[in-house]
């Protein structure tokens, strides 16, 4: 009884020790150009809509986005009918009048349906690994959107001599280089309605644009308000400085 448990623990400790050692080697994610960066940046709506399609058709089978509701998608330029159709295309859990758990078509007010009912079920279906919720992923990682893009496009063959655990994949940018998620994107995996070529870098870029919007849906309103607030404060400071000078004129 005891020996396997101890072995397991030893493996666990070894893995835990390995992570920081390798983390130091991970290259810095390359800076990408994002439509939403800078003082005046906004989300490229077409890219974000394509990114949503990639999420829906690829990521959503394992990854939840539980802090989003379908109604939020209106901000990406989907009209009311499209939002309704997107929501109706998803089965969400509910209780019927008899109190039984049932699935019904989604409504715009519903949260994004999660692929697994809970973390245990998610781990059981994924070889013990937990596919993280993606709502905040670009905000919750050092390096933000650049890092997520780097991981999505950073799959490589393991260098010779690298001990890859069974069921793991080699990724240049993931801390420790061992990631449970198999390469999620492949060329022409989805068909974009606007005829954009669905290459891996294109899909990754669009997906990260969508995820960045999901993490910070307030970004555009925030920056627009920020410009106004700061201009106002500069004027107010100037006025107050002039008042201060006048009031103090007889002291100096």
């Amino acid at each position: 009884m005891r020996a396997p448990a101890r072995t397991l623990m030893a493996v666990g400790i070894a893995a835990a020790l390995a992570v920081p050692a390798f983390a130091a080697e991970a290259p810095h994610p390359a800076k990408q150009h994002w439509s939403f960066s800078g003082f005046f940046g906004t989300f490229d709506r077409a890219a974000a809509q394509r990114g949503f399609q990639v999420y829906k058709e690829v990521c959503a089978s394992c990854h939840s986005m539980q802090y989003l509701s379908y109604r939020h998608l209106a901000a990406l330029g989907f009209n009311e009918e499209e939002v309704k159709a997107i929501a109706a295309g998803v089965e969400v859990p509910d209780l019927n009048d008899e109190g039984e758990a049932v699935k019904r078509p989604g409504r715009p007010s519903d949260r994004f349906a999660s692929p697994f009912p809970n973390e245990k079920a998610a781990r059981a279906a994924n070889n013990g690994a937990f596919p993280v919720d993606l709502t905040l992923v670009t905000k919750a990682r050092e390096g933000g959107p650049d890092y997520v893009y780097a991981v999505l496009t950073g799959y490589k063959d393991a260098p010779s001599g690298f001990q890859l655990q069974p069921g793991m994949n080699y990724n240049e940018y993931f801390p420790g280089h061992q990631i449970a998620m198999p390469p999620p994107l492949s060329d022409d995996q989805v068909t974009f309605a606007d005829n954009t070529k669905a290459s891996v870098p294109q899909m990754a870029k669009d997906l990260v644009t969508f995820l960045s919007w999901a993490a910070e849906p307030e970004l555009e309103a925030r920056k627009a308000m920020g410009i106004k607030v700061i201009l106002f404060l500069i004027v107010l400071s100037g006025l107050l400085y002039a008042v201060k000078r006048k009031v103090w004129a007889d002291v100096h």
């Binding site: 925030r222 920020g226 607030v229 700061i230 404060l233 107010l236 400071s237």
Partner: peptide, 13 residues
């Protein structure tokens, strides 16, 4: 007012 400019740069950007 001057301090608020500094503060607002963080809050908004």
């Amino acid at each position: 007012a001057v301090f608020l400019i500094f503060y607002a740069l963080f809050v908004f950007f």
